[in-house]
Design a binder for these strands. Structure first.
Length: 557
RNA sequence: GCGCCCGUAGCUCAGUGGAUAGAGCGCUGGCCUCCGGAGCCAGGUGCGUAGGUUCGAUUCCUACCGGGCGUACCA
């Protein structure tokens, strides 16, 4: 358990004991202790921890909150809690002020745990799957995919650090309508490039990248497909093109720092009969009806607005049918929790997907869908116009060329998925102070520079007197360092990776403040040793956080 | 029309059922004979509107206003 959680739990326990004691003495009456908050107050003047328990007990105890607080304090045993003094404030808050002793225990722990610092066993090895990006393999990765990639990968890192057993998965939509359409587009481009004057399908993929793909295929096979039957020709073209497109997607994601554990093909669900079987199961359970020649899933039974087609009147299952089979498959593989990261334009899909999960026999609360709002790019203060239809959009690969991997990942993760993201390209590529990515990395580089300048090995922590660290800036920095394990768990279980980006920035900020007010390489030998250890702990913490975000931790910039 | 998300400082965004609502950018003024000035310190008019629940609401609920998205036998 982390030191902060440990301290918190001890105080919580003593609060409960104090209340029971007060009741035993007849000072207080209450049925049960309500679920109270023991939080770090916003204001430092309000102590290290504060609780609202006295206000919550007013009804049960039939006493004013401050009176309840007094009884609690009178019965509170400070032993083994690090609590130095207690004050009652405001409408009835009880503020706990801690001594600094517990903070000094943090530094040796960080240095000892090193790359593992921040990790915890909170998740108990529970199996969690995170499915993200899952872009159509008919094109290149765009900004929405990029945001999903950064969010999904960072969230996966956080879950792992919090002790979950994480599987990162990419669902390949290599079947269905859009592949049909893809085939038609490829064929049209192929024939056009071979000199035939034929129209391009209106609903086809207009992007330039498809022409390039077909050119590459022609370079390999020439006119071999020309005399072929159209169906066979499309099949060949699709196969070749998918190979290329998936390869490109895989490369771009790898360059973005994202490595998947599983690439799951939709086509395999068709081939194995899993989809047919799932539909049959739903039919047997009475969740399917026929209308106008199509099979419909009764998603309205599960709170959806309207029912949804699973098999079209032409006999071909819809994407939704495949998705049901896919999610059934996920749970069959033993994932306790399944997390999907989708663009907000898919939000209408959430209710029926959860309904479907329930229909195939699993608790829909085990499926979590993170909806992320769309991304707008700005360059020179102007919106960069994009159109998927015309195939004109900035790709992930181009973004990395322009602003670099680190800046791109940080910008995508620093906002809540709920917020519409305005991505300022000029800011992201600025190699200057206004760029928040550099701010954090600079702190890390600066630390390494100090350690190098110290010219000595770090002293063994047993020989260091940490109580010499008494400056406000030092204590605040240690406090922040101590928070990492709880920050990781909080960001992971709430599925809010942007919290950790913020933490990184706050930590860097406290380090910079410390640097400006305390000289590390001072003449005072013992103080110098203590500060070197503090700096090293800050280095470890910053580096670990940067890695969680998928960013490099440069030693020089 | 109905459904989901959002409305917080000039701009981009954090944040919480509580005690004085924050950060970055931009703007102004300071700070290195010294460990990296890509840094530090100081400076502020803001929770869309109106009700409700509560000891307490920016946070929860309702209505309204404004923006985004969805509402296909597309994915």
């Amino acid at each position: 358990m982390s030191i902060v959680s440990n301290v918190r739990e001890k105080i919580r326990l003593q609060i409960e004991k104090a209340l029971e004691e007060a009741r035993a003495k007849g000072a207080l009456t209450f049925e049960s202790i309500p679920n109270f908050v023991l939080e770090v107050p916003r204001e430092k003047a309000h102590g290290d921890f504060a609780t609202n328990i006295a206000m919550l007990l007013t009804k049960q105890a039939k006493l004013p909150p401050r009176v309840i607080a007094e009884h609690l304090v009178a019965n509170f045993s400070k032993e083994a809690t690090w609590v130095d003094r207690i004050e009652i404030a405001g409408p009835g808050f009880i503020n706990f002020y801690l001594g600094t002793g517990w903070l000094y225990a943090v530094l040796p722990k960080v240095i000892k745990e090193d790359t593992a610092y921040g990790n915890s066993t909170y998740g108990n090895g529970e199996k969690v799957q995170v499915e993200f990006v899952s872009a159509n393999p008919t094109g290149l990765l765009h900004m929405g995919n990029a945001r999903g990639a950064a969010l999904g990968d960072t969230l996966s890192n956080l879950l792992e650090a919090a002790g979950f057993d994480v599987t990162r998965e990419f669902y390949i939509n290599d079947a269905g309508n859009q592949i049909e359409n893809f085939g038609k587009s490829l064929e049209a481009r192929y024939l056009q490039l071979m000199g035939e004057d034929i129209p391009f399908p209106e609903e086809g993929y207009h992007g330039e990248d498809i022409i390039t793909t077909v050119k590459n295929i022609i370079a390999e096979v020439g006119d071999k497909y020309l005399p072929m039957d159209s169906a066979l020709r499309r099949e060949f073209l699709i196969q070749k093109a998918l190979e290329e497109k998936l390869g490109a997607i895989r490369n771009d994601l790898a360059r973005f720092g994202v490595e998947y554990d599983v690439w799951f093909s939709e086509q395999t669900l068709h081939d194995s009969g899993a989809i047919a079987q799932t539909i049959k199961e739903l039919q047997e359970k009475g969740y399917i009806y026929e209308k106008e020649g199509a099979l419909w899933f009764k998603s309205t039974l599960f709170g959806d607005e309207k029912d949804e087609v699973v098999v079209r009147s032409n006999g071909i299952p819809t994407y939704f049918a495949a998705d049901i089979a896919y999610h059934k498959n996920k749970f069959e593989r033993g994932f306790q929790k399944v997390i999907n990261i989708w663009g907000a334009d898919h939000h209408g899909h959430v209710a029926r997907m959860k309904g479907a999960v329930k229909a195939v026999g699993y608790d829909p609360d085990r499926l979590h869908v993170i909806l992320m709002q769309l991304v707008r790019l700005f360059r020179g203060g102007e919106i960069v116009r994009m159109s998927k239809r015309s195939g004109q959009y900035v790709t992930l690969s181009e973004l990395m060329d322009e602003v670099g991997k680190d800046a791109a990942r940080y910008f995508f993760v620093m906002r809540s998925p709920d917020s519409h993201l305005d991505f300022d390209l000029d800011l992201a590529k600025a190699e200057s102070s206004e760029n928040p990515v550099y701010y954090v990395q600079y702190a890390h580089a600066r630390i390494n520079s100090i350690l190098k300048a110290s010219g000595t090995e770090l002293p063994p922590v047993e020989n260091v007197d940490f109580t010499l660290l008494k400056e406000e800036a030092e204590l605040e920095l240690i406090r922040k360092i101590a928070d990492l394990p709880e920050e990781i768990v909080g960001a992971a279980v709430n599925m809010e990776p942007h919290r950790i980006a913020r933490y990184a920035h706050d930590l860097a900020s406290l380090f910079h403040s410390f640097y400006n007010s305390c000289r590390v390489l001072t003449e005072e030998e013992e103080l110098r040793k203590a500060r070197l250890c503090l700096v090293d702990a800050a280095r470890i913490t910053l580096r670990n956080v940067l890695h969680l975000l998928g960013l490099s931790a440069p030693e020089r910039m």
